[in-house]
Design a protein around this nucleic acid. Structure first.
Lengths: 141, 141
DNA sequence: CGCTTATATTTAGCCGACTAAATATATCAT
DNA sequence: ATGATATATTTAGTCGGCTAAATATAAGCG
């Protein structure tokens, strides 16, 4: 009985996230981005010139994932890479003007997605929901 | 203000799902499955002999995705395919004994993941959470 | 019957994510 | 200074997910 509720929660989370990813992916194609690249750019919008390792930590993914994303973003002229002057192992990532210009449209898409997701969820329910999600997040660590 | 709460919710969902997927993927490797294949098998456990199109609809993914998953599962001897006798276009998917045998260990892993995710979330909170998630799910359709 | 259209699946190719292994450079200790 | 170890990144290869296009078969219609 309790199990079926829990299972629904887990499956529901799964369905929501895959559906969000799918819709969001489609939406990002309008501005020539692939899903996930917006998060990488978001980190750079709050300060660029960081290393790939720092991006790994922020995105919570492995180095090869960052290598590939960065390569794709570089080919599309949204970022450029420069070798660190003091440590020749590290690459530092910078935004191009095109990359900076994506901040506004991406913010708009985030807002749009949030509003669709939380339509008809009351403010006090949102607060509670956030608390429960945070709790689940910490459970996974 | 309300925006920041909403944004947290969206991002929190993102972090939870990617973390779950990651942990779960690792866990499934113990029984020679890849993440997502358990859902495909779950559909077969409730009745096999269905077509790839039916799997598509159930998994809410595109035909090439099913083609690849089915190929992988077939190579690992968890399923086998037979061409429909009345319609030579369709392939029907069946469980092997090895595939059937995975039902128990997968159920155990689901339960384990659920318990970890919902640890210290009270029963009444779980009910509310489920209601809110269902609402969000329907918002996305 | 033959032609067109619809349906089921596959192929090719791309991106995000991963692991394992290779490469390049730094650093540390002897 | 040299050799061992640590760190940053890349390469190769896998799977889940996708789109676009190819293939194969069915079904409908004149």
């Amino acid at each position: 009985m309790a199990d079926s509720v829990d299972c629904d929660i887990r499956q529901s989370l799964d369905r929501i996230s895959s559906r969000m990813r799918r819709d969001y992916s489609e939406s990002l194609r309008e501005i020539n981005l692939y899903v996930g690249q917006d998060n990488l750019l978001a980190r750079l919008w709050s300060g660029d010139g960081i290393t790939q390792m720092q991006l790994c930590e922020h995105l919570k993914c492995e180095p090869p994932t960052v290598t590939n994303m960065v390569k794709c973003l570089e080919q599309n002229q949204f970022i450029y890479r420069m070798r660190d002057e003091h440590d020749a192992r590290v690459m530092r990532i910078f935004l191009t003007e095109e990359g900076k210009a994506l901040e506004e449209p991406v913010a708009a898409k985030w807002k749009q997605q949030q509003e669709k997701l939380l339509e008809s969820v009351l403010p006090e329910e949102r607060l509670l929901l956030r608390r429960l999600l945070k709790q689940m997040e910490s459970n996974l660590c």
